[in-house]
């Protein structure tokens, strides 16, 4: 594994951005040592507010601060903050409050804590709200660049981060472009479209496929909403075969977003690699193998699609 978890890159970048923009305030729900907002809290105690284990109120308080002109980051584990969907729906989305929702510890990659702490439905829920952007970086540099953008974005954003360290997949001079996918590797036979930490596994899957004579394109999709329709269309109208990969439930995530575009285009075929059950405790690597997010399984799915 690589240098840094995206939540750590987030916590560090937030301190830097906080010095540049005095309107940034940070709210947390007793998880600042895990969401890494504690760096911000230490540097700017007057702009950090711990709301305790009361995420519904944190959502509303953040919305109120945004409506009064602040740029609030409301932070918790993704499952706990997105679990307050009704509050997000009304107080943030419908009120057009400029709140940045940060959900860390997304997916089964958190490992030992088990299902109760694993967000697997969060992308689906946030994607369903009309003016909500959904962004998930794959590594530390992308986290920093995406966060710089998010501060300037007018409107609510869900920023999905991971607990575990992830490999660096982007160059140091990486530029984040909202709504755009990033082609990491070219290939004419099949597209592997992935988001978050599993982009690294997906690159390894492309290596496996390469050894079997399959040229796989690898696309990193940091913006899940609005999804990059143009890039999906290119794949659909060339080889027409797409695998999506995400550490999220099978329903409503990146796989669904890509499927929606494909069915509207009436072109292309897709197989979705995602979590299909509640998952469980265990080590991250073992969980990825058991629930199908390992590079071997990603490659296997691609071969199945090519042979169909």
């Amino acid at each position: 594994m690589g240098a840094k978890a995206t939540r750590v890159a987030f916590g560090e970048a937030l301190v830097r951005l906080g010095s540049e923009n005095p309107d940034i305030v940070v709210l947390d729900a007793d998880l600042s040592k895990s969401t890494m907002t504690e760096y911000f809290a230490r540097k700017y105690p007057g702009r950090f507010f711990d709301l305790g284990i009361a995420e519904g109120n944190m959502v509303g308080t953040g919305a109120g601060m945004a409506l009064a002109g602040k740029i609030p980051f409301i932070c918790s584990f993704a499952c706990f903050v997105i679990g307050r969907f009704e509050q997000i729906r009304m107080s943030i989305a419908y009120s057009r409050a400029n709140v940045k929702i940060v959900g860390t510890h997304a997916g089964i990659g958190i490992g030992e804590d088990g299902y109760s702490q694993m967000a697997l439905e969060d992308i689906a829920l946030m994607r369903s709200l009309p003016n909500m952007a959904v962004i998930q970086p794959a590594d530390a540099v992308e986290t920093e660049r995406a966060l710089e953008y998010i501060v300037t974005h007018q409107g609510p954003v869900f920023f999905r981060l991971m607990r575990q360290k992830t490999d660096d997949i982007n160059p140091p001079d990486y530029q984040f472009r909202f709504g755009k996918g990033v082609i990491l590797r070219r290939g004419k036979d099949v597209s592997l479209m992935a988001t978050g930490g599993v982009v690294a596994n997906t690159l390894k899957a492309a290596d496996i496929l390469g050894q079997k004579g399959v040229a796989a394109q690898v696309v990193n999709v940091p913006t899940i909403k609005p999804v990059d329709r143009e890039l999906i269309a290119e794949a659909a109208f060339s080889h027409g075969k797409i695998i999506t990969v995400e550490d999220h439930g099978i329903t409503g995530g990146l796989g669904s977003a890509v499927s929606e575009v494909l069915s509207e285009l009436g072109r292309g075929r897709i197989k979705r690699v995602a979590v299909e059950d509640f998952a469980e405790s265990g080590d991250a690597e073992g969980l990825y193998r058991k629930y199908g997010l390992s590079e071997d399984n990603i490659a296997r799915k691609a071969l199945e699609l090519l042979q169909d």
């Binding site: 109120n57 509303g60 308080t61 109120g64 409506l67 009064a68 009304m90 107080s91 419908y94």
Partner: peptide, 30 residues
Amino acid sequence: RHRLPCLETSTGSLGQGLSLALGMALAGKT
């Protein structure tokens, strides 16, 4: 409040307004 901007908030799902007011008060103090 999106349709009628002189409203401070959109409400209607009960139980949420006091949190919004609290956020505005906190922003004011800050």
